[in-house]
Design a protein around this nucleic acid. Sequence first.
DNA 1: CTGACTACTATACAATCATTCAACAATGAG
DNA 2: CTCATTGTTGAATGATTGTATAGTAGTCAG
Lengths: 210, 210
Amino acid sequence: MTWSEVPAAPKYSRLTPEQRQAALIAAGLACLARGGILEFTIDNICREAGVSRGLITHHFGSKDGLMVAIYRSMYHRLHQGIEAPTPEAPPGARLRAMVETIFAPELFSREELNIWLALWGEIVNNPALKREHRRQYARYLRNLEAVLAEVVAARGLVLEVRPLAQMVIALVDGLGLERCIEPRLLSPRAARDICLSTLEAVLGPLDGRK
Amino acid sequence: MTWSEVPAAPKYSRLTPEQRQAALIAAGLACLARGGILEFTIDNICREAGVSRGLITHHFGSKDGLMVAIYRSMYHRLHQGIEAPTPEAPPGARLRAMVETIFAPELFSREELNIWLALWGEIVNNPALKREHRRQYARYLRNLEAVLAEVVAARGLVLEVRPLAQMVIALVDGLGLERCIEPRLLSPRAARDICLSTLEAVLGPLDGRK
DNA sequence: CTGACTACTATACAATCATTCAACAATGAG
DNA sequence: CTCATTGTTGAATGATTGTATAGTAGTCAG
């Protein structure tokens, strides 16, 4: 039989757990970006990843497990950008750099923001996601407070840092919401400028370029 | 036959379309507040309203129709609070009054905010909802811009009003997001104070009590 | 009391949901 | 080459999704 000599093509590629998990996370992100939480279904994600339905349970235990991993990956990128070490720069410049990073087009894109928005709506209603949020948000808040405390100290201002950090986070998220819903009305640069000028009104001029 | 003399209890009460629609909107709001968009299902809503499954289609055409009506009702309450006439008050006091209204406990409650959050996540992905949002948001923005323009003019500031209004909206929504997710970390009063002190940093002290 | 209108119920429907599980097959160790 | 490991498939499951539709029954005009 001649056909038996033709080596059969592999029916699927076998990846390491880390590789496959990364692929599933990417597929989940794509679904969230495309259609929000209602498009975040096992079928959609697995179709997007080119994979059969059983794999999410196998690698993440459940759909919730994947959602938590996805939320963690979103914050991971944010932390990476924000925690970039610029130790010797003056506090004002470091704060400015953090803001510039947050509003950079690759983090402040509509797809990215649609993912955040979809997940925000589930935090309150999903215990596992809420737990993950607590950890990531605490780290985010800590980073912001540290920089703000330095600025406040360097200028001898009398301001509580916690409400200041909450204000910044609210501003960032709120501008993200506005841009996500109506990108035409708010470019990443415009959003960044709004955030920076508000900060300067509160803290005084931030040094740094321009 | 004795039983025929007992008048049968009505199997259901028949309401006017306006009454029934209001009841269904209330039931939908309850579902959104309780579990976000994933709990916003025909079955849940009709069970909440004590009504059979067909009524939503009958009164609103579809589930989307009800969702649009619900979103409109949310903005309706906001507009009502904000557009309260205080014509003779100075601009600063009027701006302060608007902020006080927005952050009042009955509008800035966790249930209320969970509804906003759930709907925000669907605006981008639902054309009908997006259309309704455009109308309501425009009105909201217009109201804010009007008051801000008066404050800016009265004080001779050189500030663009549009970005200013976008900043305020972002701040309000972002603070709402933070409070919804973690009510313990941000009371309505604390959120209001953050908003007011930010505004004063930008515009100068707002007159009015306290 | 009678009839018309229509709010309302209740079922049926096909599609889709998340999860389970037995069997398969790609891969590396030996 | 051979075998054990385990990443992966694919079908089955039962629950739930939104909507369509036929029929029921509450209510009011006459």
